[in-house]
Design a protein around this nucleic acid. Structure first.
Length: 199
DNA sequence: AAAGAGTCCAACCGCGACCAG
DNA sequence: CCTGGTCGCGGTTGGACTCTT
């Protein structure tokens, strides 16, 4: 028993020693160049191998992240447009915190970027909207309130359990309004239907 | 001008899924 | 089946930058 815990501690130590030997923190232009070079030759797979071949003191994971979020071609940088924001909001309502799936529907955007955007912009926006609704609801009739909450609960019950963590704050979100595609262009509707078919 | 608060985003971490041996 | 290695994902952190007082 005691020996086992000593072994576990030793394993931990080995791991942390290796970690300390790894280069961490911001990537330099030189590292980027080396990584891109190796990926050009071997392709973006076998990340551990890539890390070794590039001669970087980075783990494969770190290399993958750097490639996916920064070096990959066709990455769109800069401000998220209103259209993209709208799309993110809708997809998040549909999928929850499945950032990679959401990113898959936004060409050139990375899951990390969308996650960051959500955490810094949209979650606040939604909170504000909710606060506003909460205060206006207080002024409304009690009977109407009961109906709205009941509906929101019913709709929430069928949701993917994995997305529960982020759903509590949105239980009272106006689904009808949110998923009202009646004013959408045919193009938007096309991807929505394609998306739903895929799932 | 300086300090503290707030914001943004790149990068890390831990965990689960997948797959080859 | 089991196991170890690898990958991909979502959550979290830390530091640089900006804004406010």
């Amino acid at each position: 028993m005691a020996e086992e815990s000593i072994n576990i501690e030793k394993k931990k130590d080995d791991k942390s020693v290796k970690k300390e030997m790894m280069n961490r923190g911001a990537w330099t232009a030189e590292e980027d160049r080396k990584l891109a070079e190796v990926i050009e030759i071997h392709g973006p797979k076998r990340w551990k191998k890539i890390a070794t071949k590039a001669g970087l003191d980075r783990c494969g994971k770190s290399c993958r992240l750097r490639w996916m979020n920064y070096l990959r071609p066709n990455i769109k940088r800069g401000n998220i447009t209103d259209q993209e924001e709208d799309l993110i909001l809708r997809l998040h309502k549909l999928l929850g915190n499945r950032w990679s799936l959401i990113a898959g529907r936004l060409p050139g955007r990375t899951d990390n970027e969308i996650k960051n955007y959500w955490n810094s912009h949209l979650s606040k926006k939604i909170n504000q909207v909710e606060k506003h609704r909460e205060s206006s609801r207080r002024e409304g009739s009690r009977s109407k309130r009961r109906r709205v909450v009941g509906k929101a609960r019913k709709e929430g019950e069928g949701e993917d359990s994995k997305s529960n963590g982020c759903e509590d704050s949105k239980d009272e979100f106006d689904h009808d309004d949110f998923f009202d595609f009646s004013n959408e262009s045919p193009l938007t509707l096309e991807w929505v239907s394609k998306f739903l078919e895929l799932r």
